[in-house]
């Protein structure tokens, strides 16, 4: 197999664009959230400063190899997810490493970061990390169930596991989107979306006052900077999947920006105004509402 060097370059460029987009967008989202609660909120470039500040810390302590690898895995999850998903439909340049079975890989990557994080955070030996991981894994598992079912439903619907094909099937008008062709599956997927974006009411994993930040309690300096990078990258990568699967994908960067922002805002819309669920509450919620909708989606197909 020959290495397609330009493709790697384009992928790196994609990564760069998405990270910067994420930096600005998450800051903007925080500003919007602040506005809802009557504040001005952080400066739009605050994320960059925080990142540099963390990198610039002089002392860094480590708890072992896995502790060190944790954020790396986490970032790998985000990068991997993004790289195996076509960012811009119809553009060879921005399709990254999309291939025939990439939907399965993408689903795997959604989990990958979380697992890597779990290993790393566990090594830090902090009890709050352990609590956070337990909460996180149990909640993510349940929350992703509707997504899995929805993905199952649409792969049945489109008879493919290739994301590019799924996007292609949705082209030609807004009513070709899965949102309209299979609203039940979309709804099921949105349950999962809201549930895994680490926002209220499903953010008990990082409950800052209760189990200081949860899994990343012990993370700081460059480790934290890596995780911060992932934290702006990963949600967007995930949003890209949702965009591709249910909202017709994007054919250019402008459409990409608008759609990602809009889809992202769904979780924000819920998140900034709702209080936090406890773990068992959110599990019950997903089992009671998310799962039936997912099953219904499959049945309807």
């Amino acid at each position: 197999m020959s290495i397609d060097w330009p493709r790697i370059g384009y992928a790196a460029l994609t990564l760069f664009i998405v990270i910067n987009y994420g930096m600005i967008m998450t800051a903007l989202v925080r500003k919007i959230g602040a506005r809802v609660s009557g504040r001005y909120g952080i400066r739009i470039y605050q994320n960059y400063i925080d990142l540099v500040k963390n990198i610039a810390l002089r002392s860094k302590i480590t708890h072992g190899v896995m502790y060190y690898l944790g954020p790396v895995f986490r970032l790998t999850g985000g990068v991997g997810l993004l790289l195996f998903v076509p960012t811009i439909y119809g553009s060879a340049m921005w399709s990254n490493f999309s291939f025939a079975g990439d939907l399965v890989l993408a689903l795997y990557f959604v989990f990958f970061g979380t697992l890597g994080m779990a290993l790393g955070a566990a090594e830090s030996g902090h009890p709050y990390s352990a609590i956070g991981i337990t909460r996180g894994l149990s909640q993510v598992t349940v929350a992703e169930l509707p997504l899995a079912l929805a993905v199952f439903a649409i792969s049945l619907q489109y008879q493919t596991l290739n994301i590019t094909d799924i996007v292609a099937a949705q082209q030609g008008g807004i009513f070709n989107w899965t949102l309209f062709t299979n609203p039940v599956a979309t709804l099921a997927a949105l349950f999962a979306f809201v549930g895994t974006m680490m926002r209220s009411p499903f953010d008990v994993v990082i409950a800052p006052q209760e189990i200081p930040i949860g899994p990343p309690t012990e993370y700081h300096s460059s480790y934290l900077a890596l995780m911060q990078t992932n934290r702006v990258l990963f949600p967007i990568a995930k949003t890209v999947i949702y965009m591709n699967l249910f909202f017709g994908g994007a054919t250019n960067w402008f459409e990409f920006a608008i759609k990602v922002f809009a889809i992202y805002m769904i979780s924000v819309l819920v998140g900034v105004v709702h209080p936090r669920f406890r773990v068992e509450q959110s599990i019950t919620f997903f089992l009671k509402w998310g799962l039936p909708v997912g099953v219904l989606a499959i049945l309807l197909v």
Binding site: I42, P208, Q209, I213, T217, H220, L224
Partner: peptide
């Protein structure tokens, strides 16, 4: 205070 770049963190590490 967030608008001045001041934030509260729940852990001493950060």
């Amino acid at each position: 205070a967030y608008r001045y770049g001041i934030q509260w963190r729940a852990t001493p590490r950060q």
